[in-house]
């Protein structure tokens, strides 16, 4: 279980996160939704200890995040995390060199799944394929939790479809996934758990199937209620 408790963050005088709490479970896809840009990426950065926080706590299975946690939880940011002049195969080698949890077999499978060529240089790839390389590097690790920042933003429709397809396969099965997005149409029927954020706070946290079953509402219905209230 990944718990975010009362997370606070200031940028200068601006309080970006005003006490954000939520829980993500293993085997579930949790979606952080916010209409405005601020905050979501910061939450993921804070979980991974990539930015200083001004308060709160982050616990992975009850323990705080340390260097060892990077074998258990990984982050796929909305940016290239390898050096652009690297070939995909070199980037994979880099991962293999530093991570015990790197799973070469799964990496090869992902190359095939995304139809990527290991000899291509990362800098020569389209935006969609760059995003796929990022996903490949994250998903080929045998980690329990995967954080993804806006995996669908700014890329073509077919790449989006392919990336959404990842969520329907064993590549994601059994893991805990936290995904941020401002546009959920690509994955609405795929997510298990939703955290609606606005203005640095959690406005509502719910299980998608429960809301459908008990209230007959879609995720977008709930968003409309919450954000337009």
């Amino acid at each position: 279980m990944l718990e975010v408790k009362d997370l606070k963050k200031k940028f200068g005088r601006k309080q970006v996160l005003k006490g954000v709490s939520f829980t993500a479970k293993k085997g579930e896809i949790t979606c952080l939704i916010g209409i405005n840009g601020v905050g979501k990426t910061t939450i993921l950065n804070a979980i991974m200890r990539l930015t200083a926080i001004n308060g709160g706590q982050i616990l992975l299975n009850g323990e705080s995040i340390t260097k060892k946690s990077y074998e258990k939880i990984t982050f796929i940011p909305d940016a290239i995390t390898v050096m652009p002049h690297m070939k995909i195969s070199e980037a994979m080698q880099f991962m293999d060199d530093f991570y015990d949890c790197w799973n070469e077999k799964r990496a090869t499978e992902l190359l095939d799944f995304f139809k990527l060529n290991a000899n291509d240089r990362v800098s020569s790839l389209s935006k969609g394929n760059t995003a796929k390389v990022n996903l490949l590097l994250g998903l080929a690790m045998d980690v329990d939790y995967v954080l993804m920042d806006e995996p669908f933003s700014g890329i073509d429709m077919f790449s989006r479809e392919k990336i959404a397809e990842v969520f329907t396969t064993h590549l994601i099965e059994d893991r805990g996934v936290i995904i941020t997005t401002h546009e959920i149409s690509d994955i609405e029927h795929l997510i298990d758990h939703v955290v609606l954020l606005d203005n640095g706070r959690v406005l509502k946290e719910f299980a998608t199937e429960e809301v459908r079953e008990q209230e007959g509402k879609s995720v977008v219905d709930v968003m409309r209620e919450v954000y337009q209230a």
């Binding site: 896809i29 329907t168 099965e173 298990d192």
Partner: peptide
């Protein structure tokens, strides 16, 4: 469960359920 998730394009957890 895994196959059906892939075929129907749904989350494997949902197939499981």
């Amino acid at each position: 469960r895994r196959e059906i998730a892939n075929q129907l394009k749904i989350n494997p957890n949902t197939a499981q359920r």
